[in-house]
Simulated scan of single mutants.
Amino acid sequence: MGAEDRGPNLNFNAKQTRLFFEGGKLTLLGPLIGHVSADFYGEGSSGGDFRVYEAYAIIGPLLAGRKWTTFMDLDAVPDTLDFQGPGSMLASRREVLRYGNTFGPLLIQLSLERPLPDLTLSNPDTQEVRKPLPDVVGALEWNLGKGRHVRAAGLARWLSFYEDGGMQHAVPGWGAMLSGLWTWGRRGTRASAQVHYGSGIGAYTADIAGLGLDAVVVAPGRLEAVPSLGVFGAIEPRWSEHLASSFVYGYLEVYPRDAQPGNTLKRTHYLSGNLLVSPVRSVTFGAELLFGRREDVNGAGDNAVRLIFSTRFFY
C-alpha cells in the first residue's frame, strides 16, 4: 500500500445498478426459463463499464450458462451495502453446467464449472497456465422450513501449468464447505454462517481471488497448492416493518508456501454493521460502517475503515 492509498477518500458511484431480463416458454421437456443480467462493474478506462453479471437458461433439472458457483450458499449471503460482502465468503460467478433436483426436503446439485486457475508462476515468459479439466462441484442442501436450511458442498479441481520444452506439471485442488441459514420471528430475522477449508481454492474466495493463491511454482517443475480457511457469521434483525440491520464478522486464514515472499497475504478480518430504512417496499436507504484488517506473512498489517451510504430502488 503506497502513500497515495492512505488517508480519507470520498467516492460516489452507481456501479451496482443492475438490469435484467427474464423470460420463459413451455417445451416438451417442461418450462424453459432464460435469464440475463448485467451491471457496471466491468474493467475499462471508465472504471464502470457494462458487464455480464449472469446469463443462463434452465430446463427441468438442468442449468447452463454464467451463474454463481455451486460451491457457495447464495441464500445465506448477508445483506451488506458493501458490494463485495465478507472477504472470507466463497463467491465466484463462472460458466457452469449444473444438474439439480429435489427429493423431499433434500436438494442435490452436481456441476461442471469453467476452470479459472489462479497460479503464481516463477517465470511467466516460459510458463503458461493450463486448463485441462473442468472443476467439479457437488452440493447437498437440507430444507428445514421456509428460510431455514443446512448446506454442504465439495469441490475438486486440477491445477496445471505448461513449461517451455514440453513439460506439463499439475497438482489437485479440493475444498469443502458447510453453511446454514435460520429465519425466525414474524418479521423474518435471519442468522447465517459459513465455514470452508481447502487447498487450491483461492479463486473461489472473495478476499484472495486474483492474488495467485490457488497454487505456486516453488521450484522448477514443482507446483504446490495453497491451503486456506474461511468463516463468517451474520445476524440480520428486522427491527420493524421499515427498519432492518445486518451485522457480519468474517475471518480468513491463508497458509502460504515457504517459497512465497513476506508480503504475501496471511489473514484478514472483516466486521460490518448497517441500518436499513425502507419507507416503502421498493425503496431502501442505508448506512454501513466497515472495519477490515490485513496481515502478511512477515507480520506487517494495516487497518481500513469505510463508511457507506446507499440508496436502493427495486422495480
Rank of each mutant, 00 (worst) to 15 (best):
L307Y: 12
K266D: 14
G7S: 12
N11M: 09
T69Y: 10
N143V: 00
A152P: 01
L290V: 12
M1R: 06
K67N: 10
L110W: 11
G47R: 09
L178N: 04
P132S: 15
L289M: 13
E141V: 01
G60V: 03
G292N: 14
L213T: 07
D135E: 15
A259G: 15
A209C: 07
E141G: 01
T70C: 01
G301V: 00
P256Y: 07
F83A: 14
Y197G: 12
M89C: 01
Y251W: 11
G7H: 13
W158C: 01
R187T: 04
L276K: 14
V297E: 15
H242Q: 12
G200F: 09
E128T: 14
D164T: 14
D125V: 02
T311E: 02
L19T: 08
A76T: 09
S272M: 03
Y204D: 03
L116H: 05
L106V: 06
E22P: 01
A300N: 13
S45G: 11
Y56E: 03
T27A: 11
K131W: 06
I201A: 08
G154S: 11
W239M: 10
E43R: 09
Q84D: 15
T189S: 15
T183Y: 06
F291P: 01
L116G: 01
T120M: 06
T80P: 06
A153C: 07
A206E: 15
V248P: 11
P117V: 10
G202H: 01
F232T: 09
A64M: 12
P86C: 05
S310N: 10
A57E: 12
V77H: 08
K25Y: 04
D5V: 02
T268I: 00
F314T: 11
E295M: 03
V254I: 15
G173W: 10
G173L: 08
I59A: 09
G47H: 11
R130S: 12
K67M: 10
N303S: 14
L155E: 10
D258W: 02
L116N: 07
M1K: 02
T102P: 00
V216Y: 13
L62W: 15
S111F: 04
D118F: 04
V305C: 02
L271N: 06
Y162F: 10
E241R: 14
R18K: 15
A139N: 02
L116R: 07
S160M: 03
L116F: 03
D296G: 05
A219R: 07
V280H: 02
A3F: 05
G154D: 05
G85K: 06
Q168T: 15
P8M: 08
P132W: 11
M72L: 12
D296R: 15
R190D: 03
P256M: 07
F291C: 03
T102A: 12
F20I: 00
I208N: 06
P237N: 03
R267D: 13
A259F: 01
L97E: 05
I208H: 07
A219I: 01
R98M: 10
T311C: 00
E4D: 14
G233D: 02
P61L: 04
G185S: 13
R66V: 04
K25Q: 13
V129S: 03
G23Y: 04
